[in-house]
Structure formats: structure tokens, C-alpha cells
């Protein structure tokens, strides 16, 4: 079973890849990782959602928390690869404009 998410740090960006389903069952575990990422005050975070099939409002809340944490620390935030149901949810919530999707 694939790891639901992983964080890769490189010299110029922090890449967070989230796979499968980001929902109420998995969002709490991601919240811990989010705190760790934000604590490093990254200059650039890219969230790769190309392998994300499903998201619910808890998952969105987790991404918003990451976004606010990164932006609050002066970093840049980008979502890449959002598709299907997750993309439909971002559009419904009008977050596609904020996330530049």
C-alpha cells in the first residue's frame, strides 16, 4: 500500500506529495507533518496532488493550514497536479484562485 504522503526537502524547495485519499481519517497524521514543515520556514513549498484521488473538507482544512503556515513564514506555496474530485472541490470552494490552479 503506497505511503499516503511524503515530504522531500531539496536545496530550493520542499515537496509534499499526497497520494490516494486525503480525508478525515488521514488528515490528522498529515497535520503533524505540516507542523514540522512549517517549523523549517521553507522558502518554497510545492504540494504534488497528481496522485490524489479523493479529498474531503478535513483534507482541504489540512492544506489550508499548510498554506497559511508557509505563507505566514514568508514562503511561496504552490499546488501542482490537482485533478478530478479534488480539483472539483477546490473550485467549489473558490480556492482554485488562491492556490493558482
Amino acid at each position: 500500500m503506497p505511503v499516503p504522503f511524503d515530504v522531500q526537502l531539496s536545496s530550493d524547495e520542499t515537496k509534499v506529495t499526497i497520494r490516494g485519499s486525503l480525508d478525515i481519517n488521514g488528515a490528522p497524521a498529515l497535520a503533524d507533518e505540516i507542523d514540522k514543515v512549517v517549523a523549517t520556514r521553507p522558502s518554497k513549498v510545492v504540494v504534488d496532488l497528481s496522485e490524489l484521488d479523493l479529498i474531503d473538507s478535513s483534507g482541504v482544512a489540512a492544506l489550508v493550514k499548510l498554506y497559511k503556515g508557509v505563507r505566514g513564514g514568508g514562503g511561496a506555496f504552490r499546488i501542482s497536479g490537482a485533478r478530478d474530485q479534488p480539483l472539483a472541490i477546490f473550485k467549489l470552494l473558490r480556492m482554485d484562485k488562491v492556490f493558482n490552479l
Binding site: D56, A61, K68, V98
Partner: peptide, 23 residues
């Protein structure tokens, strides 16, 4: 849910019913 979401106003909760109703 506010229909005027911007960077500062992004909600961290309370979106569930809104999503269901709208969908």
C-alpha cells in the same frame, strides 16, 4: 461559507455542509 474567499479568509473548518449542499 463566505463567497468572497481570499488569502486571509481561507476557512479551516465548517466547509462540509456547504460542499454537500452545493454539490
Amino acid at each position: 461559507l463566505s463567497t468572497d474567499l481570499d488569502e486571509e479568509a481561507l476557512p479551516e473548518g465548517g466547509m462540509g455542509i456547504h460542499i454537500a449542499k452545493t454539490m
